[in-house]
Computed example of a mutant assay.
Amino acid sequence: MDDVKIGEILVPGSADEHSRREEDVRRKFWRTAKKAARQVPFMEDVIAGYYCALDRETPARVRGILLAALAYFVLPLDMVPDFLAGFGFTDDVAVLVAALSAVRSHITPAHRLAAKRALEDAE
């Protein structure tokens, strides 16, 4: 996936778009994360990003970038449909890597601890 398309996906968007994305992410994140767990080798980082995106202390622009990437992740049909075995999450991985790289300094130890605990509870 080229940088232009990733850049378009990661645009934080308006307040209305931000709210819609947050609602979609809250509703669909865990179901999608469970399906993608074997295909996304950095799932703990994705979950830490999820907690960072929902943290009201996180700056709005950072929350917007994360919510945009996570909304793309939870959509069932995107550039490469998620149901395609072996390939379905490749575009999602590219978007998530770009978003997490852009906001890495805002993901706190508390977000990482919450992600670790969530993964332990899922086992």
Rank of each mutant, 00 (worst) to 15 (best):
D91Y: 06
A85Q: 14
R20P: 06
R61N: 12
I107S: 06
L54Y: 01
I65N: 10
R38Y: 06
A36V: 08
S14P: 05
A71I: 01
R20G: 13
F89N: 06
S19C: 10
L70E: 01
D24G: 05
V62P: 04
T58D: 04
D16E: 14
A110C: 01
M79I: 10
A53M: 06
E123H: 08
T90L: 15
S19Q: 14
A36D: 09
L66V: 14
A71H: 14
F89C: 09
A118C: 10
V40R: 15
P41A: 15
A33I: 06
R104N: 14
D91K: 10
V95K: 00
L96F: 00
R21A: 13
E17P: 06
I6H: 00
P59N: 02
K28T: 05
A48N: 08
T32I: 07
R20S: 13
V97M: 13
S14M: 11
D92A: 01
V62T: 15
D16P: 07
K35G: 08
R63A: 03
A53W: 05
A110Y: 01
S101Q: 11
W30D: 09
Q39T: 06
A36L: 07
F42L: 11
Q39H: 14
D121G: 07
V95W: 01
F42E: 06
P76S: 13
L66A: 07
R20F: 15
A102Y: 02
I107H: 05
V80Q: 02
V40N: 08
A118P: 12
L75S: 11
S14Y: 04
A85V: 05
R21T: 11
D121F: 03
L84R: 12
K116W: 14
A68W: 03
P76Q: 09
E57A: 13
D2G: 15
E22S: 14
L100V: 12
L66F: 00
I47F: 07
V80Y: 05
D45W: 09
L77A: 12
Y72S: 01
A118N: 08
G88D: 00
K5P: 07
G49L: 07
A122G: 04
T32V: 10
D92R: 01
L54F: 01
R27N: 10
K116G: 15
S14D: 09
E123Q: 10
G64V: 13
P59G: 04
R31P: 03
A122H: 02
G88W: 00
V93P: 04
R38C: 06
L75G: 10
Y51S: 10
I47L: 13
G86A: 02
D3K: 12
L113K: 14
M79K: 12
K5E: 15
V97G: 02
E120L: 09
I9W: 01
V74P: 00
M79Q: 14
G7Y: 04
T32G: 04
I9M: 00
P76D: 14
G86T: 02
K5R: 15
Q39D: 13
I107E: 03
D92F: 00
S105Q: 13
A94Q: 07
R27Q: 13
D92H: 01
I6V: 14
V46N: 01
A122M: 04
E120T: 12
L96M: 02
G7P: 04
A37N: 11
R104K: 08
I65F: 11
Y51R: 09
R112K: 07
Q39W: 07
S14I: 09
G49P: 05
H18G: 09
V80G: 05
L54A: 03
A68Y: 00
A102R: 09
T58H: 08
P12V: 01
R61F: 14
E123R: 05
